[in-house]
Computed example of a mutant assay.
Amino acid sequence: MLIEMIIPTFKCKEDQKIFLSRLSALPNFVNVKSDGFKYCVTLTGAKTERVANGLQEICNMWGTSFVTVSE
């Protein structure tokens, strides 16, 4: 599954580090890449309620959003 997220504005490097660690803690996490404007998060397996809830929590904390590009 490929998820795209608009990169939020981080308060500091530590804030960005925490954000990325939260993403990497998602179930079935494979990797995250940045193109400067968005993060592309790759997860294995089908989208589950647990993954969707985790992504939404992260987005809410950093004032961003996500879309599922492919499953």
Results as ranks from 00 to 15, higher is better:
residue 63 G to M: 11
residue 15 D to G: 05
residue 11 K to S: 14
residue 47 K to V: 10
residue 29 F to K: 06
residue 60 N to M: 12
residue 14 E to S: 13
residue 53 N to H: 08
residue 36 G to H: 12
residue 41 V to C: 03
residue 3 I to G: 00
residue 65 S to T: 15
residue 18 I to G: 00
residue 21 S to H: 12
residue 65 S to H: 15
residue 7 I to W: 02
residue 50 R to I: 04
residue 54 G to A: 05
residue 1 M to Y: 07
residue 69 V to Q: 07
residue 34 S to L: 04
residue 55 L to P: 03
residue 42 T to N: 07
residue 47 K to Y: 04
residue 16 Q to S: 11
residue 22 R to A: 09
residue 60 N to C: 09
residue 25 A to Q: 08
residue 34 S to R: 03
residue 10 F to R: 07
residue 62 W to C: 01
residue 34 S to F: 06
residue 25 A to I: 03
residue 16 Q to E: 15
residue 29 F to I: 06
residue 50 R to D: 04
residue 41 V to A: 01
residue 26 L to D: 01
residue 69 V to P: 02
residue 28 N to E: 12
residue 49 E to L: 11
residue 47 K to C: 09
residue 60 N to E: 15
residue 36 G to K: 12
residue 6 I to E: 13
residue 19 F to Q: 02
residue 60 N to V: 11
residue 28 N to L: 03
residue 34 S to P: 07
residue 6 I to Y: 09
residue 23 L to T: 00
residue 26 L to Y: 02
residue 68 T to A: 09
residue 3 I to D: 00
residue 59 C to V: 13
residue 66 F to V: 06
residue 58 I to K: 01
residue 57 E to T: 10
residue 2 L to E: 13
residue 31 N to L: 06
residue 14 E to Q: 14
residue 6 I to N: 12
residue 34 S to H: 06
residue 5 M to P: 07
residue 70 S to N: 10
residue 71 E to T: 02
residue 70 S to I: 08
residue 71 E to W: 00
residue 24 S to N: 12
residue 16 Q to N: 10
residue 52 A to T: 10
residue 27 P to K: 09
residue 19 F to T: 02
residue 38 K to L: 08
residue 62 W to V: 04
residue 3 I to F: 08
residue 18 I to T: 07
residue 35 D to Q: 07
residue 67 V to M: 10
residue 40 C to V: 09
residue 66 F to Q: 05
residue 26 L to E: 01
residue 56 Q to I: 04
residue 37 F to Y: 12
residue 29 F to S: 06
residue 12 C to W: 03
residue 20 L to P: 01
residue 24 S to R: 15
residue 4 E to V: 12
residue 28 N to K: 10
residue 20 L to I: 04
residue 59 C to L: 12
residue 11 K to T: 13
residue 7 I to L: 10
residue 29 F to E: 05
residue 28 N to P: 00
residue 33 K to Q: 11
residue 37 F to C: 09
residue 2 L to P: 02
residue 70 S to D: 08
residue 3 I to A: 03
residue 24 S to E: 14
residue 53 N to D: 11
residue 11 K to D: 14
residue 11 K to H: 11
residue 34 S to E: 08
residue 6 I to R: 14
residue 30 V to E: 08
residue 3 I to P: 00
residue 67 V to N: 13
residue 5 M to L: 15
residue 24 S to L: 06
residue 22 R to E: 14
residue 26 L to S: 01
residue 38 K to V: 05
